[in-house]
Design a protein around this nucleic acid. Structure first.
Length: 439
RNA sequence: GGGGGCGUGGUGUAGUGGUUAACAUGCGGCCCUGUCAAGGCCGAGACCGCGGGUUCGAAUCCCGUCGCUCCCGCCA
């Protein structure tokens, strides 16, 4: 007999069905037993009159909650049942995956354990409907990204995550043993997607793992995360990249809203707003003025840069002024940007770059890249990089390379912002941080 | 790496100098006209992270240590 999803039971009134899932609750009374079964699609009540088969009733009584059970029975419409107005009248019952009792983390408990404990028992934590919903949303979002790229003639790439030499300066790299030598885990597909531009691919995207050896202890950092990267050729400025990104994000939000609007309201209390385009754009210079105006003090050591508190203050200002959850912070000074960002021809101290701030959290960094070999080389020297170690990269620009730009977006950060989660650890399947390598 | 906060039954909390360390939930047992966040009764379960100190007396104050967490730096 084929398994029926709980969500589809309404279409099977009067029929005999088989449902399989977790035994969420057992209300064991003198004459009757009520079982609440949960599968990925929902909950259903199963009713059993003990007198029908005392031995079976005994078996049911002895089943610990969260065991996986298989039930067959007849679906009956019953308005008295608060759970969906229907129930299954049990005929056969089998425990196909018994649970031990007590369970270390009860997925149905109203009081949530601490995040650390939840991560220890993540597979139990993930039985909670809000968590499964998060991964449904992630799936929808990733599919929407892909749809959007495919509609726009993108090529998907998978760049290596093992690298022979430390590439960009700054970001810390994980070192791994590689036979007789050392390798490094890629902290970004940056160089490789630019390589694809030099290869004439014109438009590429990659969704893949990114590794950062930064000992960051915040609610929005991980040492391993999924990066959503893209790069496009024949642009005129970073504005072209921003325009593409905002349209794509609007598309992604719309797809997520279409698919999960009600559930997101129910489980996260979020009324998903599809962002309007264009997003507000604030230059760094304007940002500093705004912060001055609203009385936000930037720490003095942050020359030309804005700290997270400043980003949140700006986000508040944008929200008040434009009623927008997103904004671009553009034209960053060269001092806080990597060597490969292109600079403004008329303002050589400013890069043609942007960050996307969503609800006060930085979720994207992008720029037009410098594709002119000599200038790029010069900028690398200026930043104190070893030309030798990045010569393979500089070579991309020696034999004809179209002007191009792109961005990197953190998938979990996007989900965190979208679903208004307090911590990125809730927005990822398994968190990896400085002190967390298990499970 | 710097700073703040927290660490009490399985879990979530209360208790801030003297209590048999409390409550909820979960767990075990019994009871119960179809229950539905089911309900009722009974029971087991914490030497209060660990080490030291102050005190007649410490979960409570101090020091150290470990763990977690948040913020900053760094970034997606």
């Amino acid at each position: 007999m084929e398994r029926t999803k709980i969500a589809d039971l309404r279409q099977h009134i009067g029929e005999k069905v088989k449902v399989q899932g977790f035994l969420q609750t057992l209300r064991d009374q003198k004459k009757m037993q009520f079982l609440i079964l949960r599968d990925l699609s929902g909950l259903v009540q199963v009713a059993f009159w003990k007198a029908n088969d005392p031995a079976l009733a005994e078996k049911i009584s002895a089943t610990p909650t969260e065991s996986v059970v298989s039930v067959t029975g007849t679906v009956v419409d019953n308005p008295i049942v608060k759970l969906g107005g229907l129930e299954i009248q049990l005929e056969t019952y089998e425990v196909i995956g018994p649970a031990e009792a007590p369970i270390p983390l009860d997925p149905t408990a109203e009081a949530l354990p601490s995040i650390d404990y939840r991560l220890d028992w993540r597979f139990l934590d993930m039985r909670r409907p809000p968590v499964t919903l998060l991964f449904k949303v992630q799936t929808t979002a990733e599919a929407a990204f892909r749809e959007y790229w495919l509609k726009h003639d993108f090529i998907e790439i998978h760049s290596p995550k093992l690298m022979g030499s430390p590439s960009e300066s700054g970001a810390e790299l994980f070192e791994v043993q590689y036979f007789e030598t050392k390798a490094y885990l890629a902290q970004s597909p940056q160089f490789y997607k630019q390589m694809a531009m030099a290869a004439g691919f014109e438009r590429v995207f990659e969704i893949g793992p990114v590794f950062r050896a930064d000992p960051s202890f915040t609610s929005r950092h991980m040492t391993e995360f999924t990066g959503i990267d893209m790069e496009i050729s024949y642009i005129e400025s970073h504005e072209d990249v921003m325009r593409f990104l905002e349209n794509m994000l609007q598309y992604v939000y719309q797809r997520v809203k279409d698919a999960h609007d009600e559930e997101i309201k129910q489980h996260f209390g979020v009324d998903l707003r599809v962002p309007s385009v264009p997003f507000p754009r604030i230059t760094m210079a304007q940002a500093l003025e705004i912060l001055k105006e609203v009385g936000y003090q930037i720490p003095p050591e942050k020359k030309g840069d804005i700290d997270p508190g400043g980003e949140r203050a700006l986000a508040d200002y944008i929200k008040r002024t434009y009623d927008h959850d997103f904004f671009y912070l553009i034209d960053w000074p060269i001092s806080v940007r990597p060597f490969y960002h292109m600079r403004h021809a008329d303002q050589p101290h400013l890069t043609k770059s942007f960050d996307l701030i969503a609800n006060g959290t930085e979720i994207v960094t992008g720029a037009q890249r410098e594709h002119r070999y000599e200038i790029l080389r010069q900028q690398a020297i200026e930043k104190g990089l070893s030309i030798q170690s990045i010569q393979f990269y500089l070579d991309f620009f020696r034999y004809g390379c179209p002007p191009h730009g792109g961005f990197g977006l953190g998938l979990s950060r996007l989900l965190m912002v979208m679903l208004n989660l307090p911590n990125i650890r809730e927005a990822v399947f398994l968190f990896r941080g400085p002190n967390r390598l298990h499970p």
